[in-house]
Nucleic acid binder design. Structure first.
Length: 124
RNA sequence: GAUACCGGACGGGCGAUCGCUGGCGUUGCCAGAGGAAAGUCCGAGCUGCAUAGAGCGAGGGUGCCCGGCGAAAGCCGGGGAGACGCGUUGUCGAUGCGCGUCGACAGUCCAGAUCGGCGUGGUUCGCCACGAGAGCAACAGAAACCAUUCCGGCGCCCCCGUGCGCCGGCUGAAAAGGGCAAUCCUCCCCGCAGCAAUCUCCGAUCGAACCGUUUGCAGGUUGCUCGCCAAGGUUCGAGGUUGAGAGCAGGCGCUUUGCGCCCAGCCCGCUCGCGGGCUGAGAGAGAUGAUCGUCAGAAACAGAACUCGGCUUACGGUCCGGUAUCUUCA
RNA sequence: CGGGGAGUAGCGCAGCCCGGUUAGCGCGCCGCGUUCGGGACGCGGAGGUCGGAGGUUCAAAUCCUCUCUCCCCGA
């Protein structure tokens, strides 16, 4: 989980990032990023109604939050970032599947520069 | 012992590191989703609106009997009308009996009666009132709901026909005795809406009242004066936002860093109904997660959103009880 | 989270309230005719678990219960 100051809180913030932010996507996730004037990053997570029931939507959001919690110290600051899970993701998803996918998307959007992308992360 | 079905209980435990939400005495400590939290099918609390009482109308209500629990919904136990299946009286049918499964079933008994029984409601416990109607049944069949006479047989009127009476018949769910109230209706019961309810505070904005003094370049109304308007200030009211708080997290009260009483669960003591101790989720883009170790272990359905009591639906695995079948041993 | 509505042929809809004949209409589809050919037109035809399961009834698209999917509204 991410601390409250680092979360996107209002619907207007979400709409601004979703309409004007830069978008990259993979088979399972969509990442949108937009510079802000707060001085640090803020994160928002979304799972649509068609993704599954409440348990499956909460599960997906928690996995996304966990990935962003770990990657947050290594990211460029000053952006609002929205991570959206797509509806075709299998329901037996685990952290080991989610983390490389989102890290690759953040690298492609230019916020994440990992020295050796294939190495096992230290906090495992 | 195995398999299947039915009913009930449990709904992973312990440990390590990182992280989240709330509280507190804040380098930390404590607490932190369910049996269904779900569907929203019922009933209550709570809140706002409406409302004298009563009646009429609309809409809704799974409604046998007895006993128990409950605030109510409803649940538990027993019994009955009735339905279906199996067995049995040689077979088929009818009927009777036995067993099993079910049993959302009010609107009556009696040939009839202003009487009586029974049921419902009211009651001053003496008794009183009410228990009334309508509709539907395709196709087939002679005939389908105040019955009827198509066919055959028998009997009677002297004989035939006609007629009358009795018996039988194909059809159909049902053939004169009823069926349907998960048809209308009658009896009985029910105010409407819901925490995105509702209440409080702050802001934009709007309205009303009052103030608006002296000097000087100082808004508009004719150049000036007065007056009026505008700007500004104060008070009151309206308004109700992507705002804040309450509702809201065991409850209530008080002399409010706390104390007292009460409620529920668990544990302990025991003089056996009392005493003591511990515990009580409360978010607001919405808190329970991640990586591992271990136990035989990769486990289903599934996430609190105002609260509580039920109903229904979903569910891997383990344990307990019952029934049926098979196998082994005695 | 709360409150409502709808599922019927490939598509859009009737029928449901008040149960009973073959579940009907328009567009679409198929075949034939017409035309040099196509369209239009005319004739004929196919296509339906009435979202799913259970119940009431002699009989259910219709009545009752449960369930699935979709849509709308409420700060």
């Amino acid at each position: 989980m991410v601390a409250r100051e680092l979360r996107l809180r209002s619907a207007s913030d979400f709409d601004r990032v979703r309409t004007r932010g830069r978008t990259v996507s993979s088979r399972w996730f969509v990442v949108k990023a937009l510079p802000n004037d707060v001085g640090h990053n803020r994160y928002g997570f979304a799972a649509g109604k068609r993704f599954g029931n409440a348990v499956q939507r909460n599960r997906a959001k928690r996995l996304m939050r966990e990935v962003l919690r770990e990657l947050h110290p290594h990211l460029a600051q000053g952006f609002d970032i929205v991570v959206i899970v797509r509806n075709n993701v299998p329901s037996d998803l685990t952290y080991a599947h989610v983390r490389p996918d989102i890290a690759e998307l953040l690298r492609r959007v230019g916020l994440y520069h990992e020295a050796r992308p294939c190495v096992v992360h230290s906090s495992g």
